[in-house]
Design a protein around this nucleic acid. Structure first.
Lengths: 206, 206
DNA sequence: GTCTATAACCGGATAGAC
DNA sequence: GTCTATCCGGTTATAGAC
């Protein structure tokens, strides 16, 4: 992997991402972003006009990652097994790679819920395929009758929440054990998958 | 329930809670809190010296609610059924009553993780009783072998996350259905309990 | 205890030299 | 494109009258 030297714009984006995630839109300082990028504060305005515009840019990029990933999973899933497997592994894979995304979204979900929901509605993201799979499997009597909305929320909750609660899991729950947070997260996909399968399938499948 | 007229300090706390929750520490403005309380901005400083101190006061009170509730559940639980039942119902009950708590904590979890973890460690909160119950039930072969850390995280995730994701659940997932977010949350306890029981128990208990 | 006025500071944004 | 210097609005915090 050859690393081309980062140009200023890239440096700014990377620095902005880091600072905005940690501090949120309101807590972030343009000076802090400039320092992080190792450039002059004025350059931020030269490249992105305003703090708001810089934030929007960074935020939509992050949010888009989530949308595209979810969409790709929903699009290819054939049955509940593959859907669950794909969804959990990809979701957690993405969050491990870019753990900032969760904080980012939750940080801003209250500040500007309308914008976020708008971005979701404008995306092609469509859970109806998942709904259909659940309905089919239920008709085949492979799975217990589950409310599809609660089921989706369950899956997402189990994947996302640990990243949000990282400081508590790390500093309190796992404190004094020999398990690191990274190890915990590494175990998560199989833990979630077996948990959900047991909850879902009428016949034990393990 | 006789309502004694609120004194200024109480008015401030209530207003501060509302504003801090909505905007976070950084986004909140002392003027905004004063307006919300219907008092003069200087009075905030008269009663609480600084924005930081006011915030700390409001935050620890909210956080304490969570700690005490969790603790009381852990303390009384006898077996896994009662623990699950108590935990889910009380947790969601608390969050319905004070939905701001989740946002509050998540909002600040990154801003100051050390402080939050410190507060937890200083509390008497102790999950070891829950660990013991899980181990006992596993020995009795009533439940599948589960990792206790993942199990706790699962329970909390399923309870808390929906409140965090409210705007998305309301504005996207349930959009176009005739289910309101409140109805969704009302269904949650029994949904979670049956989901977790199915995942957990070797014999089907419904 | 409550108010008005103002100090002191900070941070986003711009002007203009290089 | 990049830097220095500066403006200007907004925000916390205090002083002091009532």
């Amino acid at each position: 992997m050859v690393k081309t030297p980062e140009n200023t714009e890239e440096k700014i984006i990377r620095a902005a991402r880091k600072v905005f995630i940690q501090k949120g839109m309101d807590g972030a300082r343009m000076q802090g972003i400039a320092d992080e990028a190792g450039i002059n504060k004025s350059l931020l305005h030269y490249y992105f006009r305003s703090k708001d515009k810089l934030f929007s840019r960074v935020f939509s990029e992050a949010f888009n990652d989530i949308i595209e990933m979810s969409d790709s999973v929903f699009a290819v899933a054939e049955d509940i097994d593959s859907l669950l497997d794909e969804f959990v592994k990809r979701y957690i894979g993405l969050l491990r790679e870019k753990p900032f995304i969760t904080n980012f979204i939750i940080h801003e979900i209250n500040r500007n819920p309308g914008c976020l929901v708008g971005q979701m509605q404008n995306s092609k993201l469509d859970p109806s395929r998942l709904m259909k799979i659940l309905a089919d499997e239920k008709n085949n009597a492979r799975i217990r009758p589950v409310d599809p909305y609660h089921f989706i929320v369950n899956m997402v909750s189990l994947c996302v929440f640990p990243f949000l609660a990282k400081p508590i899991i790390q500093g309190f729950l796992l404190d004094g054990t020999n398990i690191s947070f990274d190890e915990f997260i590494e175990q998560r996909p199989e833990q979630i998958i077996s948990f959900v399968k047991n909850a879902l399938f009428i016949k034990n499948t393990d």
